[in-house]
């Protein structure tokens, strides 16, 4: 297969430009499996295309939007209802089919077994045992150090995983930038244990070479998207700051534009404030947004409302 045909198949077959690097890693044997969300009416055709690529697709369940929530067309990791997926139910079904994909059926089933997403059933949230979070991470082929990190830190009311990764970092390498995971130019999907994690860096470098063999231009875009200055508050409130410059006078950062990188635009309140300014200063957990010398607004990050919100400026190089 011509390399550019691969990108075309991945995009047209799934109806999405997301997770391309993850699929390339899967086909190259750099990942064991992944999970994805496929429109019901594309599932059969995607399963056939995937088979041609040497991949097995196993449906898990049908995720539908909660009533009233606009569908954004990107990975719906939260706020969805789920229904059992019945084979042949594709016509007329709404929502997205959650699937596990791997180069072998056994590996896909292994991921499916550990891949239960917390769900409210008959009024009670059904979670899975902690050990299954680790099993799922390993089934996806993530580095073991990062899987252990995720198991101990993926608790939003108690930890800010990005801040924890940052604390463990001596430098912030673009190969370990997970903030672009919901964009077409993503590099890694997993949360690295640090932004200079050696296992993640090795994985990314190998993957980057494979992506280059598929498309030099796409590889450049992936790398360029991962380099630069990023503002994060938590995992769903993340921004790329274009033309960011550190001030000589204070610790503020000027920028030309801010791009929201999360998957849910309902979480993009800070983006509206950022669009009115051209400079930010973070102090005492508050993001101060200025236009020139005028303060146009502030955004208070909170640690008491269900997630540990910690504003951070990360500069990946």
């Amino acid at each position: 297969m011509h390399p550019s045909d691969l990108l075309r198949d991945l995009i047209q077959g799934r109806g999405s430009t997301h997770q391309l690097s993850s699929y390339i890693a899967l086909i190259a044997g750099l990942r064991r499996s992944l999970d994805d969300w496929i429109p019901p009416d594309r599932l059969d055709s995607w399963t056939r295309i995937a088979a041609r690529l040497g991949l097995t697709v196993i449906p898990d369940c049908l995720f539908c939007d909660l009533a009233g929530a606009p569908y954004t067309g990107v990975v719906p990791t939260t706020r969805a209802t789920a229904e059992p997926w019945r084979s042949g139910a594709s016509s007329g079904s709404r929502g997205m089919v959650h699937v596990f994909v791997s180069s072998s059926r056994e590996r896909a089933e292994e991921a499916l077994a550990a891949g239960w997403y917390s769900l409210v059933v008959h009024g009670r949230p059904i979670t899975k045992p902690l050990v299954d979070h680790g099993r799922l991470g390993m089934a996806f082929g993530y580095p073991e150090c990062c899987v252990k990190f995720f198991m101990s830190r993926n608790d939003w009311p108690r930890w800010n995983t990005l801040a924890e990764s940052f604390k463990a970092s001596r430098q912030t390498l673009w190969e370990c930038n997970c903030l672009t995971k919901h964009t077409p130019c993503m590099m890694i999907y997993h949360m690295p244990c640090s932004f200079d994690c050696s296992a993640t860096t090795a994985y990314s470098r190998s993957l980057f070479e494979v992506i280059r063999s598929v498309s030099e231009g796409y590889a450049e875009r992936v790398r360029d998207s991962s380099i630069g200055t990023f503002l994060t508050v938590n995992e769903v409130v993340t921004y790329r700051l274009v033309s960011a410059q550190l001030s000589d006078v204070d610790a503020s950062i000027s920028y030309r534009r801010a791009f929201y990188l999360g998957s849910y635009h309902e979480n993009d309140n800070l983006g509206r404030l950022l669009s009115r300014g051209d400079r930010i200063l973070i102090q005492s957990g508050t993001v101060f947004v200025y236009r020139g010398r005028d303060l146009v607004g502030t955004s208070d990050a909170r640690c008491d409302l269900g997630s540990m919100d910690v504003p951070l400026l990360l500069r990946f190089a």
Binding site: A163, G285, A301, M308, D309
Partner: peptide, 14 residues
């Protein structure tokens, strides 16, 4: 949630 120990310079400082 031990925020004053984990992230003292964020919300706890404010």
């Amino acid at each position: 949630h031990r925020a004053h120990l984990l992230y003292p310079h964020a919300h706890p400082q404010r």
